[in-house]
């Protein structure tokens, strides 16, 4: 398992690795779960109060289902750690952050300077997402 390279939370990280969605259903004490692209994030919604870490795996950077998984979880009120793992290009970092991810464990560590630039790229955003940023169309109208 790759190390967490960026984490935007102040609470202590969960030490346990996430179990698969199937195992999670059977283990009533598990607090960390790992979603694969084909898993339905909504299967976790009844259990959000006991989850502290959800890892969303990106086996390939060309599979974008995890972006929707993240927003679905945040929209349902999940406030625990949401970690993107797998093949994470630095150019996706800002968009992943907007979808609600607050920690990143890329397979190949990212250049920290590039990562900082990617996260600071957009001063404003056009549309709301899971990061609470006020979209341009609201800024225009106070």
């Amino acid at each position: 398992m790759s190390d967490v390279q960026f984490r935007f939370r102040t609470d202590d990280a969960v030490a346990d690795p996430g179990v698969t969605v199937d195992v999670f259903g059977a283990q009533t004490n598990a607090s960390a779960v790992r979603l694969e692209p084909g898993d339905d994030a909504r299967d976790l919604l009844p259990h959000l109060d006991r989850i502290k870490l959800i890892e969303v795996n990106f086996p390939s950077f060309t599979d974008g289902r995890g972006f929707s998984s993240a927003r679905v979880l945040r929209e349902a009120g999940y406030t625990g750690e949401l970690r993107a793992v797998g093949e994470l290009p630095v150019d996706h970092l800002g968009h992943l952050r907007r979808c609600g991810f607050d920690s990143f464990a890329p397979d190949i560590p990212l250049n920290p300077v590039d990562a900082e630039a990617a996260l600071a790229r957009w001063e404003h955003v056009y549309q709301p997402a899971a990061d609470g940023r006020v979209p341009i169309w609201n800024l225009r109208h106070g």
Partner: peptide
């Protein structure tokens, strides 16, 4: 156009 520009969820569609 504005909504779809850099929409963070929909930049890696099928």
């Amino acid at each position: 156009r504005q909504w779809s520009s850099f929409h963070p969820e929909f930049l890696v569609l099928p």
